[in-house]
Design a binder for these strands. Sequence first.
RNA 1: GGUCCAUUCGUCUAUCGGUUAGGACGCCAGGUUUUCAUCCUGGAAAGAGGGGUUCGACUCCCCUAUGGACUACCA
Length: 509
Amino acid sequence: MKRRVRVRFAPSPTGPLHIGGVRTALYNFLFARQHDGDMLLRIEDTDSARFVPGAEEYIVEALNWLGITIDEGIGAAPDAKNTHAPYRQSERKAIYRKYVDQLLAAGLAYIAFDTPLELETKRAEIPNFQYDAKTRHLMCNSLTLNAGEVKTRIENGEQYVVRIKIEPNQEIKVQDLIRGEVIVNSSVIDDKVLFKSSDQLPTYHMANVVDDYLMEISHVIRGEEWLPSAPLHVLLYRYLGWSEAMPEFAHLPLLLKPDGNGKLSKRDGDRLGFPVFPLNWKDRKGDDTFSGYREAGYFPDAVVNFLALLGWNPGTEQEIFSMQELIDAFSLERVSKSGAKFDYEKGKWFNHKYLQNKPIEELADLFQHELIEKDIVEDSEKVMKIVDLVRDRADFISDLWNQSSYFFVAPTTYDEKTVKKRWKADTPAQLTELITVLESIDDFSPENSENIVKEWITIKEYSLGAVMNALRLALVGEGKGPHIFDITSIIGKEETIERIKKSIREIIV
RNA sequence: GGUCCAUUCGUCUAUCGGUUAGGACGCCAGGUUUUCAUCCUGGAAAGAGGGGUUCGACUCCCCUAUGGACUACCA
């Protein structure tokens, strides 16, 4: 019988959720939805030293913004069942201890007293030192100490860790859904720390395996950085007697820096001028801020679409996918094996595409917020008209202002190059005449004004281009913008004439 | 250093032994536009190298090179 699909996204709250983590969450989510399974969010906060306040809230908010919904665990709906609570590892302390003891009792793990300093010394002493079958007899642990000594030390409050006792020279096979079979010899795996007495918490490996088992996770979909420790996890399932219930693994390729080499990192965004985080993040200590996609003006569905295609492809030529289409088309088999360099230009293109396809009301509404910040109050009908005229030249909502500011405020300066090209000796005289023509127009609609103005130009035998381009310069302040009579119609007769007068006064060649 | 993973246009990728190696972003050119942009059309642009296997290899195998991840009482 096929088991129910249950996947988890299990970040640790050590800072803002990185865009690579977002993609991992997304793939988990898509997989869960496609199989009518459950998507869990578990917080892996077993490292108290690295805990960052606000990080958990950030993660939840980011996933929420992107439409990655959680069925169970942290950030799930208030009426979620949460049958496997708690979902913060720091709140599961008591649970882990039991399994650590089980391993200890079975002789599959042991207690070690070596201090960090002692370990450091050993590493300096022995080249390629690894705490394993070859070296553990040299160390201070329950294998080298007698039982009484171990007991006394613990009773005296000496700190210790529990290490897994790895049987050397075993072939460990990891079945990966993306990479196939990966075989590792157990001799290269060290006796990893599973539990530390200092905070009574397990380390990642132990907590991860115990929780995945207890939470009945069917598929572990995570970043490639975990591939080297996957054999350890397989061993842990075996040692705990859970081999039958072991989840399937899928290790995702990494997101790489756009330039040079290496994993995309926190600082790359600001260095290269694009966000690597979903939302803005401000470090509590220090005043470092990192920009996010949301604040940069990205649409969440565009980010999702972009991210989905970074490391996965549908095998068809379709590039624009709604969340539902992604859910339907996604498959682990079509996830690529090699790391993907992060291509910010493509991200912009996705946003542009999405911006073009959004309902005009939605764009106008978003744009209104920007206008309000600039203390500009306009009725929504007019804003909609303006957005409709300039949207195809915008990648982001924030571009809308650059493309349309002249609808709201008259130009204060005139672009030098354009002046040179479009403002000739006879321009002021022609525009002065044009003012008279415009004054006579009652119906200032684009069509009507255009007809009348063009008729006048024809009769006068002026150059159409010369008049129109000068007029554009007067209205916009530079040589850009949509159809000129759409502009005049929106700003109105009075303002149009006012701007022409101003340009005649101010442009001196 | 060791272990593992990877390697097709600048970038994301298609190809699952037989293709003029396809698409997208970006770039260049042309067209549309009274302007700018959008848009449309076209173009340049790739199988890391070397050995095998095969009638035939981008595709399968091996070696080399390169890149990456991991190598903590971090995840």
